[in-house]
Design a protein around this nucleic acid. Structure first.
Lengths: 143, 143
DNA sequence: GTACGTGCAAAGGGTTTGCAGCCGC
DNA sequence: GCGGCTGCAAACCCTTTGCACGTAC
């Protein structure tokens, strides 16, 4: 039985007619060893010993996104952030504008509401982004 | 009584110690004459007769954002999109991944839920982003 | 062996910045 | 007149692309 992310990804690659390569394996393994959120450069840094090029990072992230293993999230900054998805569906983010801290919360009820709205609009909902921006406890006290 | 967006913005500028300039007035007027969403370049195009530089567009958008007249929204693309906020609070977006169409919906109930979550986390909620990605009616039929 | 994948470096596109001149106050 | 504002062009940063070489199958 396939359980590890890298095995699931290989499964995806083969099914889609892509080659399974050592580089892709390394990237997936690293993605799923990272807790929380990351951007392309952070992932690249984490893989610097493996001498993977930043171009390949981007190319592989796109594959991982298409495969549904990773999703792109935006925290109001100019560049993209990612998070892995496996086994952690239905959560939203509270993003602190002062310190950048990201608090995750369970969002099943919100997603249900959103699904109803989508249905009413005859919209096929594939993914939901729920984010609150403001100040975390520590930062509101510092003000 | 102050009612027009540009007058409210002037009020804001004065209060904050910024100068009120003709360029800033032109930009605000244009922002609020645009329906729906726009990015910096689109706003720049709309102002091409006024020979405003793209740098000033960005600088003024930042002011408008700080003033709460405009907010940055992300539709999964690399660059930022904006929408004006006055008199149209509490709405979310359904973004079609195929054709890019954006459907707005009223999101008061979702925002209430989010506020409860923020309270529980001792988080000061300033702004909420609720977005669904997927396929609009037209595009799901085309598939 | 062929087609796809990778690294490298260069190009691309959106956004920001330094600076000289201009304009609001 | 002084300090903030603007346009211009260059710089920046993240991301994508072209190409020659390497690797999976």
């Amino acid at each position: 039985m396939l359980t590890k992310p890298e095995e699931l990804f290989e499964e995806f690659l083969r099914r889609q007619g892509f080659n399974v390569t050592e580089t892709r394996r390394k990237i997936v393994r690293k993605v799923f060893s990272l807790h929380g959120h990351f951007d392309a450069t952070e992932l690249w840094d984490a893989l610097r010993d493996d001498k993977v090029s930043i171009a390949t990072i981007y190319r592989t992230l796109e594959l991982l996104e298409r495969a549904g293993f990773v999703r792109r999230v935006s925290f109001g900054e100019a560049h993209a952030h990612y998070e892995h998805v496996l086994g952690r569906d239905d959560h939203g983010h509270l993003v602190c504008r002062r310190c950048g801290r990201v608090i995750e919360f369970e969002s099943k009820r919100i997603k249900t509401l959103l699904q109803e709205i989508a249905d009413r609009n005859e919209f096929v909902l594939q993914e939901a982004i729920v984010q609150g921006f403001g100040l975390c406890r520590d930062c509101r006290e510092g003000r």
